[in-house]
Every structure is written in structure tokens, then in C-alpha cells.
């Protein structure tokens, strides 16, 4: 500023500069705080993050990719839930216009299940109503994530990625069942 300003009524450079700096500080701290809270929820496990490259151990799947015309070579040939020798659960789901296979995916309550999803044609969405399970099904690729269903019941499984004229009817379900002892 050149000339000294009188104590006028309107906003002036010095006052504004001070407030600007304070606000810049607040904005920066807010952005960093957001980032830290998101990282915290990674560690607390509230977020079912997708694994980087899905299903690397699955027959016929390499680097998270598979040949969409040759499901026969993979477990996606017979979609559904299976229990591995070590007792863990894995589910294989194929999305295609305009339904999921299996139409009703049965999963055990209270047990971690790793779900692998792929598509037989175009992009589809894999969204389970009332949960934060929300993933993309891509032809030629496998989307994998692990989750635990805490309550028994039937949940709607909704395709939420545009897949053609029948998109809005592409709704199936996940049935969370109490295990027979």
C-alpha cells in the first residue's frame, strides 16, 4: 500500500489480508483433516476396499483379468457360493444383461465372504441395498472384495451402471442365511 489510509468504513487491504491468511489456514487444515479421517477408516475397516488386482488365485484369472468368452475355464462357469478346504467362503457372480447369476446369492451370516464379480457383456454395477457394497462389474476383469453380512435376511442386489434398455429391471437378491450347525 502506498499512502496511509484513513480509518475508513470500508474493507481495507490489511484487514482483508489477515482474514485471508486465517481462512487459507483453516481451509488447508480442513483438507488435511478430511484425509486423515479417511485413512483412519481404512484402518478401522469400515470401508470394504476393493483389492488391487482381483482374484489372483482363481483358476483362469491372471492379473485380475479373464477371457470373457471362456468362462468355462474359470469358476465363473458355475456361479454361486463355495466353501474352500480351509473353511473360507468365496462367491462367484456373473453380471449380464439384464440379470445377475446366481439370481439369488446365498451367503452365511456372520462369516467373511469374498465376492468375485465379472461381466459377460457390458459394464454393470453391483450394489447391495442398504450397504456400502458398491462395485463395478467389467467384462474381462474380476472385481473382488471381502465382506461380512451381520444380519440374516434378503437384500436387493441392484445394477447401478447403465447396461441397456433393460437396465432398470436388473435387480436380483442376496440371501443372508443362518448356518445349520
Amino acid at each position: 500500500m502506498s499512502a496511509p489510509r484513513p480509518a475508513g468504513q470500508r474493507l481495507d487491504h490489511h484487514t482483508l489480508e489477515k482474514y485471508e491468511n486465517i481462512w487459507f489456514g483453516i481451509a488447508t487444515v480442513m483438507a488435511l483433516f478430511l484425509f486423515v479421517t479417511v485413512l483412519a477408516s481404512f484402518f478401522s475397516g469400515t470401508y470394504p476396499s476393493l483389492t488391487g488386482e482381483g482374484g489372483h488365485h482363481i483358476t483362469g484369472v491372471k492379473n485380475g483379468r479373464l477371457n470373457p468368452k471362456n468362462f468355462a475355464a474359470t469358476p465363473f462357469a458355475t456361479p454361486g457360493l463355495r466353501q474352500n478346504a480351509d473353511g473360507t467362503y468365496e462367491a462367484f457372480v456373473v453380471a449380464k444383461a439384464f440379470q445377475f447369476e446366481p439370481a439369488v446369492l446365498k451367503v452365511p451370516v456372520g462369516r467373511p465372504v469374498t465376492i468375485h464379480v465379472t461381466s459377460a457383456d457390458v459394464l454393470h454395477g453391483y450394489y447391495i441395498e442398504g450397504t456400502n457394497i458398491n462395485a463395478t462389474a467389467i467384462p474381462g476383469q474380476v472385481t473382488s472384495f471381502t465382506t461380512t453380512f451381520r444380519r440374516p435376511g434378503t437384500l436387493n442386489l441392484i445394477c447401478n451402471e447403465y447396461c441397456g434398455t433393460g437396465h432398470h429391471n436388473m435387480i436380483n437378491s442376496v440371501k443372508v442365511e443362518v448356518q445349520e450347525p
Binding site: V38, L39, F42, S49, L50, T51, G52, E53, G54, N63, G64, R65, G125, N134, A135, T136, I138, Q141, V142, T143, S144
Partner: peptide, 12 residues
């Protein structure tokens, strides 16, 4: 975030 085969580190 909903897409597979991109590492969580890069997304973060």
C-alpha cells in the same frame, strides 16, 4: 473407487 485393478494406493 468402485473399479477393480487399480491399486488403492493410487486411488488414495
Amino acid at each position: 473407487y468402485a473399479d477393480p485393478n487399480i491399486s488403492v494406493t493410487w486411488k488414495t
